[in-house]
Amino acid sequence: MSDQAFSLWVYLSQTPLLWLVVTLGAYVTADRISQVFGRHPLCNPVLMSVAAVALVLWTTGTSYPVYFEGAKFVHFLLGPATVALAIPLYENRRVVLRALVPMVAALIVGSVTAIVSAVAVAQVFDMPRSILISLAPKSVTAPVGMAITETLGGDPALTAILVMLTGVIGSIMVTPLMNALRMKDWRARGFAVGLASHGIGTARAFQVHSLAGTFAGIAMGLNALVTALLLPLVLAWLIG
């Protein structure tokens, strides 16, 4: 590399601009590929984008903190997007209020199942305590899951990855699984994927059906709330 090209790279790689463009570019490309394949569950935009960005970081020898300096502007929008979930919720308020009883039941049963089943399988593999703690909130939206892990003495960065993988796994699984179970209730389908797979599951639900997306969004919000309250108790009972 010539001196000029090198100093240009040094400049670009340290500004937010380059990593913002890389993040958006990876997403736009991945979203287009997903569209071309008719939103096939295996063509998950998040998974493809993360692989592409990780490859760029690896080939250019860029560290994650440097990348995040730029990408944090996108990351910040998670908060406002969570707030904006109120809009489809308000639009569908009549359907939602009608489903209040099944929602509360599914919420409590599902939330405890998500924690207990993950930790139980991991215990079979004899994992250290800090990994078990980081795994437990894997069905909760990333910012909340990371906060829970931090309070309990786990590894928040590991939680972020496990949360992402859970989202991708759930959004790949949900449509074929629900079809196989002959579930035709869009509210129940959406609620299940939002509870099990937070925002990535909600994004998938919105691609399939707007009512499913609405219930997924509600489940994501409520599960964040319930898991934050229940997880310390359940974990104390599971791993002491």
Binding site: V53, A84, I161, G213
Partner: peptide, 22 residues
């Protein structure tokens, strides 16, 4: 609000790329 929600997947990328650290 719907514009924000239409591209919810995009917002998860920065945190998820953290996989390279673990």
């Amino acid at each position: 609000g719907k514009g924000l929600l239409a591209h919810l997947s995009l917002l998860f990328i920065p945190a998820s790329v953290g996989v390279v650290q673990r």
